[in-house]
Write a protein that binds this DNA or RNA. Structure first.
Length: 273
DNA sequence: GCCCAGGAGTGCA
DNA sequence: TGCACTCATGGG
């Protein structure tokens, strides 16, 4: 099955390369994208962006197609911040994905003090070791492992997958989630959710904000990493150094658009716009 | 060899 | 509470 969308506010490169997802790779005229145990092929053909999948309904929601991004871009420009204006215009095809909670939880624990190419490699090896084999369009891939599979893998498995010192975080947190589930995180406000996420081993402020934003749809979250620290200093003239306070500054400034703005700024800074 | 990467945990004042 | 130190690992 395939579904096509207006390409103006749906650019696969912007959506995938902006750092919110780690399981995708160039494929034919576009990208092969994996989420949980599902896969799709996404590419742009002229003025249309096409999604091919066995579950187009899932990926319709995954790519956040019910939301009007022209309004988000319009509001971003009203702040008159040069980097944000440039980035939201050049990257107006960027969309925030609605990703799986558990996949985000484990993926962003791995992301701490790490670089994106290596994060992708580690996650890929974990999926190959513990996930289930799948096939779509002749491509072999593995599902993201279930929490029980992760919990029974043991610390040494994660070390061999290249996680480094984060091995213990994954072992402990997956064991905890295996025993108590994640339903305790449902129906919480963004503030309450972050507070709860901070109680897991390996989850600090920045990672909690990423999980809330990408996994729980808390679009008023604003993760501050090394790139956003640089944006804060160079493009907002900020003087604070505490990341928690910088996060507060941005969330108060951008409110319910904070998460979208954060992605425009993060990706725009990395592209040196 | 150095510095950096979508940082967080720990110990100590 | 604040702050320095440490933690694997691969790329540039």
């Amino acid at each position: 099955m395939k579904t096509d969308y207006d390409a103006e506010y749906f650019n696969p490169e912007h959506v995938l390369e902006c750092g919110q997802i780690f399981r995708f790779s160039p494929f034919k005229e576009g990208y092969f994208v994996i989420s949980c145990d599902k896969a799709c092929y996404v590419y742009t053909d002229g003025v249309k962006t096409v999604v091919e999948s066995d579950d187009c309904e899932y990926f319709h929601d995954f790519f956040d197609m019910r939301r009007d991004y022209s309004e988000i871009v319009k509001r971003a420009k009203t702040h008159n911040i040069p980097l944000l204006t440039r980035s939201s215009e050049v990257c107006k095809g960027l969309r925030l994905l609605n990703q799986d909670k558990e996949e985000m939880l484990y993926s962003f624990i791995i992301s701490q003090n790490n670089n994106i190419p290596r994060i992708k490699g580690i996650i890929s090896r974990i999926c190959e070791g513990l996930g289930e084999k799948r096939d779509y369009l002749g491509v072999q891939y593995h599902s993201f492992p279930s929490t029980p599979a992760l919990a029974s893998a043991g610390r040494e498995f994660f070390r061999e997958a290249g996680c480094g010192y984060r091995d213990i975080y994954l072992a402990e947190t997956s064991a905890r989630v295996a025993s108590e589930g994640l339903s305790r995180l449902d129906n919480l406000s963004a503030g309450e959710l972050k507070k709860e996420l901070l109680s897991y081993k390996g989850i600090g402020g920045k990672v909690a904000d990423c999980i809330a934003l990408f996994g729980f749809g808390k679009r008023n979250s604003f993760p501050v990493d090394t790139w956003l620290e640089k944006v804060y200093k160079e493009d907002f003239g900020g003087t604070l150094t505490d990341r928690a306070k910088i996060t507060d500054y941005f969330t108060e400034l951008f409110g319910d658009d904070a998460g979208y703005v954060q992605q425009y700024l993060f990706y725009g800074k990395r592209l040196n716009l």
